[in-house]
Every structure is written in structure tokens, then in C-alpha cells.
Amino acid sequence: MIRFSSNCDSLLKAYLLSKLTGDQILTEGGDSLLFFREDAVIDTENYILEDLITQYQDYFLRNIRWLSSFKGNELKYRISTALRHTSQHKHTVVFKALEDAFSKGIHYCLEGASEHGKQLRHLCSEVQHEVYRMMGFIRFRPAGEKCLVASPKLYYDTIDLILREFQNRYPYHRIVLVTEAGARAIEDKRLFSVDPVFYEKFLADDSFDQVWEEYYQSQYIPARKNLRLTASKIPKKYWDWMQEGKILRNEE
């Protein structure tokens, strides 16, 4: 059995090892390793990716140098992003997508022509979509001099990606995001954890809430009402969390 960690390099190594050794990859149920003898488990941490690529090329006489090209990096980026998803089947999807990339070509996989390529793209785009949405939907509260705090509603492991995006917008601020899992902050492009209790007092109502609500309502043209379109842009799962959610509910 081949054991891997949940990162892109380890997954790639596991895939190549499975091809070279003919062993199975342990995609789910890590606990069942207890039943295997220690020397029956191959750990990807003991191998170097470059060596495995060379071995694979020598053994199968196939050029897979595209893994180090622009397109290869795009695939790696897509895998890394998909791994932030909460889906239980993400590892299986990644391995099947890799199979498509190696057998039918990198473009076939990346453009989503295969079923698994499509699933990989879907996982990746859901994660990216959360980052993009949060860039717009998060509302900050001032928390002292040059510090902004917010409490986002996240479904995937995207907190550090969101913080990095916000750092470009507020380069001289400390940005703090408080979630159920804890609080993370960024300042001077440095990510770190902070105590959420300290920032909770700043998350109370802001006088600008009312300003925003008044402005939001002033922009609505009732003659063009189209709540289905709105719900496709702001999914209902965010309506209880977002300030304008209650206005949308009243319009339902």
C-alpha cells in the first residue's frame, strides 16, 4: 500500500509510485494500515519527485517533462486548490484526473474534457469561488489604528488565501479574520494566528451598517425584481450571515 500526505507533491509521488510498483494507493481509511506489516507500506515522504519522474520516463519510455512546464504547474496549482475542498472523495478525484493527464494528455485533463478532469476543475473552482466571493462579501470593522477585523463564513480551507488577497487591498493594515476554527491575521505579508477573544468586541454592530442598508436599498429597481438571479449570485447559505440577507428574505 502507498501512503501519502494531503499535498500536491505527495499525491504526484503516490501516483508515480503506484505505476512503478503496481501497488495500490491508500486513498481513504488511513486507520486500516494497522493491519499491514510495516514494510508493506510505502510512504511517499521517503521519495524525491524528480527521481520518480526520471524512473517513470526510463521505465515506460514516455516523456512526462510537461510536469515541470507551465501547464504542469497549472495542474499542480489545481490539485493544491482542490485539496482545500472538504469533499471526502477529493483524493480519488485527483488520482483519476492524473490518470487522464498521463494517458490522454495534460490538456485533456486541464480543460475538463474527461469526467474526472471536470470533477477536479469543479472542486478547484468551488474553492476559488469562495475566495472570490469572500473578497466581496466580507465586511470589516475597524479594530483600532490600521487594523480591520471580520468574521467570515467559510466552507473550505481558504482563510490564508483570502487574507493574502486582502493584503493587496490594505497593504498597511493588519487584517484579522475570526472563524469557528480560530483567528488568523496578516500584516506585512506575514500570516499568523491571533487570540479571537481580543477581537470579538470589535465585531459588534457598526454605525455604518445602517448606512450600507440605506444605500443598498436605494440601488434596487423593483420593476426589475429577479430574486432567482440574486440567489444564484448570493447563494441562500449566505443570507443569514450577510447584512442584506434579511432584505432579500423580506423580498421573497
Binding site: 466581496g136 462579501f137 487591498r169 498597511y172 423593483p222 430574486l227 432567482r228 440574486t230 449570485k233 442584506e244
Partner: peptide
């Protein structure tokens, strides 16, 4: 600039009940 940036994709911050 001390605050604010632009993106090639732009960002939507909310949508009114008319979907805009």
C-alpha cells in the same frame, strides 16, 4: 497608494433583489 487596488476581474460586493 496606501489603500485600495484594482483587479483585472473586478469584484462584486453584493446583489440587489433585481439581481444587479
Amino acid at each position: 497608494a496606501s489603500i485600495g487596488n484594482t483587479l483585472p476581474s473586478g469584484i462584486c460586493h453584493s446583489f440587489t433583489p433585481d439581481g444587479r
